[in-house]
Each structure stands twice: as structure tokens, then as C-alpha cells.
Computed example of a mutant assay.
Amino acid sequence: MTIERPPLRIAPPPELGSAAGPLGVPVAVLGLVLFLAAVAALPRLSFWGGEYGGILIYLAFMLYTAVAGALIRWGIDTAADRRARLGRVRSAARESRR
């Protein structure tokens, strides 16, 4: 017996459909800004770890960067899906004119 698993992919929820398409680029930019803020905070991590506890600070930093990375990936995937969808619509419109 074989269990088929869907491909691992972060995409907009099906109930949003094409409504999430315009959010792709702004969300990717937001994720990039969050990631750059995390890089800027790297020199202070050891100080914060000493003040507030290393495990807490490093766990929070990992979660923060994971969320930033997920936003970047979701934004890029959503923008690419929107671009592909618009390309298919445009080619279908060209074909119908012929």
C-alpha cells in the first residue's frame, strides 16, 4: 500500500484563490525587511542572551527568522503563481482572437 503525499509547497489558501495574488510582492518585501532587521540584530544577541537568558533569546531569534523566511517564500510563490495565471489568461485571450 502506497500513500501519496501532496507536494510540499507554500501557496495561498484555496479559498483566497486569485485574491491573494497582488499581495505576493509586498509580503516578500516585508519578509526581506524583517530578515534584514534580524541580521542587524545579530551583534546584540550575545548581550541579550546574557541579560535575559540564552535559550529564550536564541529560540525567539530562530522563530523570528523562520517567520521572515516563510513570508519571503510565500510572497515569491504567490507572485509567481499570479504571473503564471496572468500569462495563461493573456495567451487564451490571444488564441480566442484568432
Rank of each mutant, 00 (worst) to 15 (best):
L32W: 14
L34G: 10
L34M: 14
F35P: 03
L36C: 14
L36F: 14
L36H: 06
A37T: 14
A37V: 08
A38N: 07
A38V: 05
A38F: 05
V39L: 15
A40Y: 08
A40E: 07
A40M: 09
A40S: 09
A41S: 11
L42F: 03
L42C: 07
L42T: 14
L42N: 09
P43A: 08
P43D: 08
P43C: 11
P43N: 11
R44E: 03
L45N: 03
L45D: 03
S46G: 05
W48E: 00
W48F: 15
W48M: 14
W48C: 02
W48R: 10
W48A: 13
G49R: 10
G49Q: 07
G49Y: 02
G50R: 11
Y52H: 12
G53M: 01
G53R: 06
G54V: 01
G54I: 03
G54P: 00
I57E: 00
I57L: 04
I57F: 01
I57Q: 00
Y58M: 12
Y58Q: 12
L59A: 15
L59G: 11
L59I: 04
M62H: 11
M62T: 12
M62V: 04
L63S: 10
L63H: 08
Y64M: 09
Y64E: 04
Y64H: 13
Y64T: 14
Y64C: 06
